[in-house]
């Protein structure tokens, strides 16, 4: 029996997810342009694994398969995994990570809408802990052609240490630490001077900054489509820039500039696509601000003082933990109970 309202806005989870996927396209295009088509292989691998894992779990849990497979939420998770992992990780790593994300982090917690953690970020953290070496090999822009990428992804032998390095974020941190060391030959150099190398572009990592720009573009489109609100990306970027800027202003020789932080690593992807995952994020406007600001500061702290190449994943998970508390304490006053 259907009761009012009898009319509905033509909206669906599938549509929302589809728009998120579309918004990722500019970033992916930049990725392919600068880093080669290997990422497309990873995207396909992850998508296939996600669908397979989701289908299996839905079958086990006795849920309607067609309905939930077509909601595209698994694909979004898969793409985020592929986009945050190094593009040349072996195929089994991508597949395992995606399966973990879908089966354990999403479905075992109850499936769509029930997972307290962002599945993609949880998988990222698990993998970086389990395979730190594989997860830290990033090719520089234009360094590898498609066939060598394929070989790295599917081939058994990996001798990539020679040709790949850390992310610009990682490299700059190492360099900055070295610069602080009086014995090092880099001693006394500032971040801007250190960034003169071929791995760096104008703002962040070479090529990486364009990818970030692509994600920013897609994110702005999502904002315009009202799929996401300004709160999370705004607060995240502000908090990241502010905390980075503060230390940079105090000690410019020891820290990278806020612009570099915003343009490198997963900052843009995180701001517009990862932290904005509604399921595991805060929901009230004030809560979103808190949640994203916390993630921004944490990201910077982990980047500047931690041992991992990027901080977005850990920051996201840590803030996911706080969501119930944040939501509970940031409920807006309801109609007629406002003090204005």
């Amino acid at each position: 029996m259907i009761n009012s309202p009898f009319v509905r806005k033509p909206a669906s989870v599938q549509q929302v997810m589809l728009q998120v996927l579309l918004a990722l396209v500019p970033g992916i295009a930049a990725y392919v342009w600068f880093f080669g088509a290997g990422i497309l292989v990873q995207l396909t691998l992850a998508s296939a694994a996600a669908l397979a894992g989701e289908a299996a779990m839905l079958a086990i849990r006795g849920k309607p398969k067609a309905l939930f497979l077509s909601d595209l939420s698994a694909i979004v998770t898969a793409w985020l995994i592929a986009l945050t992992f190094p593009p040349i990780v072996p195929w089994w790593l991508t597949v395992t990570a995606t399966l973990l994300a879908i089966v354990v982090v999403k479905q075992l917690y109850g499936g769509l809408g029930q997972n307290p953690f962002n599945p993609a970020m949880a998988a990222f953290c698990l993998m970086i802990v389990a395979y730190p070496a594989l997860m830290s090999q990033w090719p520089a822009a234009g360094q590898l052609d498609f066939s060598s990428q394929l070989q790295l992804i599917f081939g058994g032998i990996r001798q990539v240490d020679a040709i790949t390095g850390a992310t610009p974020l990682d490299a700059l941190r190492t360099a900055l630490r070295a610069a602080a060391n009086p014995d090092s030959q880099l001693h006394g150099l500032r971040a801007s001077q250190l960034m003169d190398g071929p791995a760096y572009g104008m703002l962040g990592g070479k090529g990486g900054e364009w990818v970030a720009l692509g994600f920013l573009l897609g994110g702005l489109w999502l904002l315009q489509r009202r799929i996401i609100t300004w709160h999370i990306p705004g607060a995240f970027c502000l908090a990241l820039a502010a905390s980075a800027g503060l230390l940079w202003a105090v000690r410019p020789e020891g820290f990278a500039s806020p612009v570099f932080h915003l343009a490198s690593g997963g900052a843009m992807l995180g701001a517009f696509f990862i932290l904005t995952d509604p399921v595991s994020g805060a929901t009230t406007p004030r809560g979103k601000l808190l949640f994203a600001a916390g993630a921004g500061v944490l990201t910077f702290v982990i980047r500047a003082f931690g041992a991992y190449p990027d901080g977005v994943a850990f920051a996201t998970l840590l803030m996911n933990l706080c969501v119930p508390l944040i939501d509970m304490n940031t409920q807006a006053p309801v109609f007629g109970h406002k003090k204005d």
Binding site: M1, K63, P64, K65, A66, L67, S70
Partner: peptide, 12 residues
């Protein structure tokens, strides 16, 4: 009012 029936039909 009755508890809303959760009708998760197999999407055709």
């Amino acid at each position: 009012w009755r508890y809303p029936v959760i009708q998760i039909k197999q999407a055709a």
